[in-house]
């Protein structure tokens, strides 16, 4: 009598392949956020020469077109801040803006957006919480990886 159940070695093989596929998917997703992080750091590079210390910590993830993400950040009056955003999707357009705790646009006018890079500059008028809003405005991808870094001086 032949059994319809797969033998142990087949089950193991399928389980192994599934685990490998899952691991590859996780690694690919992580790699893309890492790529986005590299682009965000690339935006920050010129500012390091101006004395900005870029934090090692960063935020990242993926967003659909038109989706936004808010990051709450404690900022101090007396410091100057830049937030840099990047994605590895070169045909995407991303944006970053800073609002104060009351929801009022707080960034300086030299904040900029250039395709898959964007940056927002803030000289806080008061110490407290600010909201950094990141968005993917357009992209050929369904989900677009993004990363945000910040620096201060």
């Amino acid at each position: 009598m032949t059994s319809m159940r797969p033998d142990v070695s087949t089950t193991r093989r399928v389980a192994f392949l599934f685990a490998a596929a899952l691991a590859l998917q996780v690694a690919a997703s992580r790699a893309s956020v890492d790529d986005a992080h590299s682009f965000a750091l690339e935006s920050a590079e010129p500012y390091v020469k101006e004395g900005y210390q870029v934090r090692e910590d960063y935020w990242g993830g993926d967003l659909g077109v038109g989706e936004k993400k808010a990051v709450r950040q404690q900022l101090f009056k007396g410091n100057e801040y830049w937030f840099w955003m990047g994605t590895e999707v070169e045909r995407a357009k991303v944006s970053v803006h800073i609002y104060d705790a009351d929801g009022k646009l707080a960034e300086q006018t030299d904040s900029w957006q250039k395709g898959h890079f964007a940056a927002a500059h803030l000289v806080p008028k008061s110490t407290g919480s600010y909201f950094v809003i990141v968005a993917v405005d357009s992209s050929p991808e369904e989900r677009t990886h993004w990363a945000l870094v910040y620096g201060f001086k």
Partner: peptide
């Protein structure tokens, strides 16, 4: 591109944790 004002109360579901300075 950037609205002059946003309703921060509506952001609650999409807020990331703070990075400790």
């Amino acid at each position: 591109d950037a609205p002059r004002r946003i309703d921060v109360k509506r952001l609650s579901k999409t807020i990331e944790d703070v990075v400790v300075p």
